Amino acid sequence: MASQGTKRSYEQMETDGERQNATEIRASVGKMIGGIGRFYIQMCTELKLSDYEGRLIQNSLTIERMVLSAFDERRNKYLEEHPSAGKDPKKTGGPIYRRVNGKWMRELILYDKEEIRRIWRQANNGDDATAGLTHMMIWHSNLNDATYQRTRALVRTGMDPRMCSLMQGSTLPRRSGAAGAAVKGVGTMVMELVRMIKRGINDRNFWRGENGRKTRIAYERMCNILKGKFQTAAQKAMMDQVRESRNPGNAEFEDLTFLARSALILRGSVAHKSCLPACVYGPAVASGYDFEREGYSLVGIDPFRLLQNSQVYSLIRPNENPAHKSQLVWMACHSAAFEDLRVLSFIKGTKVLPRGKLSTRGVQIASNENMETMESSTLELRSRYWAIRTRSGGNTNQQRASAGQISIQPTFSVQRNLPFDRTTIMAAFNGNTEGRTSDMRTEIIRMMESARPEDVSFQGRGVFELSDEKAASPIVPSFDMSNEGSYFFGDNAEEYDN
């Protein structure tokens, strides 16, 4: 783990906690998980779902989305002020799938948001429990990260689609708070800032007046979040320049895209947490497990152990491969979309394939898809080993990566060399080191050039047997250095459309 220093740990961010010791953190995270579980059980009762239907990941996603929508204050306010045809701002819903006479049927349900809020609060001892809501947002974000390569979004903001390893959390809503900021990748933060800068260039009043003052505060806050992700002084200094700019424009845009590229080699610290679907927490609570009393951590053995003992089902389209669908969801559960496939294969105990080789589309089923041909199958979400999630980018030494994705962002704290394609990355730096950030740029390029592919990161860190909950005997895996390590390699994943 990167030293926490003055930073709060993510469990504290996750639970809005002030400084807590490890036991208190485990208890408050457990409380959050228990609340999600209780809410899910109650919703299944309301909807009269069978046990099997309640364990269907598509039903879980609909129920999670309903509660997130019920608590989305800004959108609710907007919907009330701008009524649109056929949208009731006070209601929320989605597809629920039921097994009827041996076939899967889709039923569109509609609930009062007020009623959903009441059920959620009741499951969370009367609190709004925003930490639990954020947790579900991060699960949705991790699922998107594993399912889609955001080529269009990258290109629109002047970045290269091969930089997708920097895009963790790119679909997280803005209201996801400190826990959300911690899991956002460098590219995601750059993209958010670039969008602001572009608006400022096109709209003279963007930075002016009372609204402009708020915009400015948001801009500086985002700059500080991004600065905190960088691990070298030169990158941090460049972020200070971007933040202090009187009138952010093209120079800042250039600096930010430069920094994003540099992060492929001088990786930023991005938190990883295993956020599971509500249909995993519900049955665990129903079986009598007391998360608050037992304590829970999002970055240790607990999620692995929970998945070892969970039964989750998914709808499967006619030509999809259930094992591939399982891999997709497994990666999402562990926030591992940008991790090295060699490491993932070792931990999972079966070969993890790149996205383009998977015969599976996303987990969600569109409303126009034919239910007649839908089957369902068990998702295999178990693992051979477990490993500690990392909050750091690993040290800054790398190795060759593949054509589709030119770097990785480690999820697990496991000893290995970190793949990246130096030639491709360095070719993108057209040696432009003039301007006010020239000395920093020169320094950053120097550090990137001296990074050695064969150097090892996370020295001495290994994986653990599932029986080793105290992480007492690390097993340090050895990897084939020459092997392909990137998930979005030469990829044809669908595009994420909101």
Rank of each mutant, 00 (worst) to 15 (best):
E11C: 02
M13D: 03
D16V: 08
R19C: 11
T23P: 13
E24F: 14
R26P: 00
A27N: 05
V29Y: 04
G34A: 15
R38H: 14
Q42K: 11
M43I: 13
E46S: 01
S50M: 11
L79A: 06
E80S: 15
I96G: 00
I96C: 14
I96E: 14
V100Q: 06
G102V: 11
W104S: 09
L108F: 13
I109K: 03
L110S: 03
Y111Q: 09
E115I: 03
T130D: 03
W139A: 03
W139Q: 03
N142T: 07
N144P: 00
R150V: 03
V155N: 05
G158H: 12
M159S: 00
C164A: 09
Q168K: 09
S170N: 02
R174D: 01
K184C: 01
L193V: 11
N202H: 10
E210I: 06
E210F: 11
N211K: 09
K214L: 14
I217P: 04
C223E: 09
G228R: 10
P248W: 05
A251C: 11
T257G: 02
L264N: 07
R267D: 02
H272T: 04
C275M: 02
P277Y: 05
A278H: 07
Y281A: 13
G282T: 08
G288R: 09
Y296L: 01
L298P: 11
I301D: 10
L306C: 01
Y313K: 08
I316T: 14
R317P: 01
N321A: 13
P322F: 06
A332S: 15
I347T: 13
I347E: 03
T350L: 15
T373N: 13
M374V: 09
E375N: 12
E380S: 09
E380R: 00
S383G: 13
S383H: 10
R384T: 09
A387Q: 01
R389N: 09
T390M: 04
G394E: 12
N395H: 15
T396M: 06
Q399M: 09
Q409N: 06
T411F: 08
F420A: 08
T424P: 04
M440H: 02
T442L: 13
I445L: 14
M448F: 03
A451Y: 03
E469F: 13
S473Q: 09
I475H: 13
